[in-house]
Computed example of a mutant assay.
Amino acid sequence: MAGCQCEHHTSNHNISKKFRNALWIALFLNLSLFIIEVIAGAHAGSAALWADSLDFAGDAFNYAISIMALGLSLYWRASIALVKGYTMLFFAILILVKVIWAYCTGVQPEAMTMGVIGIIALIANVISALVLYTFRDGDANMTSVWLCSRNDAIGNIAVILAAVGVFGTQSAIPDLIVAAVMASLGFSSGYHVVQKSRAERQANKTGHLA
């Protein structure tokens, strides 16, 4: 029995190590694309790119939390997640303000820049999803980070479609629609994270103080 427990412990340790390495790769990719899309969004005047950069920022923060959470109690994981939730809300509001400003000024984004950056972002998310694919059937933490990358690839496709729409219609409306939808989802997700984090902090507060 002792030998079985040791083997099980070693197996879990190896899985955790591989998962940590996968998270670092995903973190680097998402943080890099966040910076790239913020700069490209400002250059191209694209609200959709800015909205997608919100996803990359949130994901990078999520991966960082997942790395730190490997050795933390639920109370502190919830505390860190609470910061993430408020950050997501802030960025979502910022993107909605950008959408309103772009609509009022009537500035048309550069479709070519949107499309190129959208494709690059899609590739980055596909790589992240493939790296995390092995852990898709693990615990809730492992499953969530893989689904995060997989779902973001869908957002990248939306940006590419927005670029096609801008190019075809010579209008900023497709870009603004995609940005508004993504910002709304970001706001909804941020609110959900805040509510869940508060509940988990409250539920584990007694044990933490003890």
Results as ranks from 00 to 15, higher is better:
residue 164 V to E: 02
residue 164 V to S: 07
residue 166 V to L: 10
residue 166 V to N: 00
residue 167 F to S: 03
residue 167 F to A: 02
residue 169 T to G: 08
residue 170 Q to T: 14
residue 170 Q to L: 15
residue 171 S to L: 15
residue 171 S to H: 15
residue 171 S to V: 15
residue 172 A to V: 11
residue 172 A to K: 01
residue 173 I to W: 04
residue 173 I to Q: 02
residue 173 I to F: 06
residue 174 P to W: 02
residue 174 P to T: 06
residue 174 P to S: 04
residue 174 P to I: 10
residue 175 D to M: 00
residue 176 L to F: 13
residue 176 L to I: 14
residue 177 I to C: 13
residue 178 V to H: 12
residue 178 V to Q: 05
residue 178 V to W: 12
residue 179 A to S: 02
residue 179 A to F: 04
residue 180 A to N: 14
residue 180 A to E: 13
residue 181 V to D: 08
residue 182 M to F: 04
residue 182 M to I: 09
residue 182 M to G: 08
residue 182 M to K: 04
residue 182 M to A: 08
residue 183 A to E: 12
residue 183 A to L: 12
residue 185 L to H: 01
residue 185 L to F: 10
residue 186 G to L: 00
residue 187 F to D: 14
residue 187 F to S: 04
residue 189 S to Y: 13
residue 190 G to S: 13
residue 190 G to A: 11
residue 192 H to K: 14
residue 192 H to Q: 06
residue 193 V to I: 09
residue 193 V to N: 12
residue 193 V to S: 12
residue 195 Q to Y: 01
residue 195 Q to W: 07
residue 196 K to S: 10
residue 196 K to A: 05
residue 196 K to D: 05
residue 196 K to G: 08
residue 196 K to V: 05
residue 197 S to A: 03
residue 198 R to V: 07
residue 198 R to M: 08
residue 198 R to D: 01
residue 198 R to S: 01
